[in-house]
């Protein structure tokens, strides 16, 4: 992983971390990225704390230091605690988590480990626990977080460590 940025930043100083990063170099796409992020967090049936569980597990799997150490304020307001985060980010979260969190973690792991394996046990458990709109929302959340965290890694400039940072949805 490169600690040297591979693309220059946009040069803007809007205070929006996306617009001010290298992503801001492409004006044709940056508004869509920001709007999609808001839609993912604000317009689906999953609660913010559950969305954050998916985001944080994704961050661990991609090893995005920025993503791993960010905490969305709306998820914290929805009840996400640091002990819950620590469990989600552990190697084997297992039964320390509630059933829905366990399945969200398992879904993210399947996405990265072997998405084509057709894990019938997992599929059945997901369908028994989540509604179809919730599963569609979870899938699209993961697609967005995967896109975003892999983007951050591929663009370089990633430090080895960062403190935990509270963040808000970019406007």
């Amino acid at each position: 992983m490169s600690s040297r940025p591979r693309a220059k930043s946009s040069g803007s100083a809007t205070g929006n971390m996306l617009r001010d990063s290298a992503l801001g170099l492409v004006p044709e796409t940056i508004d869509h990225l920001v709007e999609l992020g808001r839609a993912v967090w604000e317009t689906g049936p999953l609660r913010p704390a559950e969305i954050e569980v998916a985001r944080l597990r994704n961050a661990v799997r991609v090893n995005c230091v920025f993503c791993r150490n960010a905490r969305y304020d709306i998820a914290q307001a929805d009840g996400l605690t640091e002990p819950r985060v620590a469990t989600v980010q552990s190697a084997s979260p297992g039964e320390q988590l509630g059933r829905r969190d366990q399945l969200i973690v398992a879904f993210v792991d399947q996405y990265y480990d072997d998405p084509g394996a057709h894990n019938l046990t997992l599929h059945n458990a997901l369908r028994a626990t989540f509604s179809e709109p919730e599963l569609a929302h979870l899938s699209l959340c993961l697609a967005y977080f995967s896109l975003f965290s892999r983007c951050a890694v591929a663009l370089g400039g990633m430090p080895d460590e960062l403190p935990v940072m509270q963040v808000s949805l970019p406007r």
Binding site: R6, A7, T29, Q110, P115, S139, A143, Y144, S146, L147
Partner: peptide
């Protein structure tokens, strides 16, 4: 250029996520 690298990475993020979800579902 720098913007082209960003575009490629954004495109790959979309293509890879689509492929993974397609295999999952």
């Amino acid at each position: 250029g720098d913007a082209g690298l960003v575009v490629l990475i954004e495109a790959l993020g979309l293509f890879d996520a689509t492929a993974r979800l397609q295999r999952l579902w």
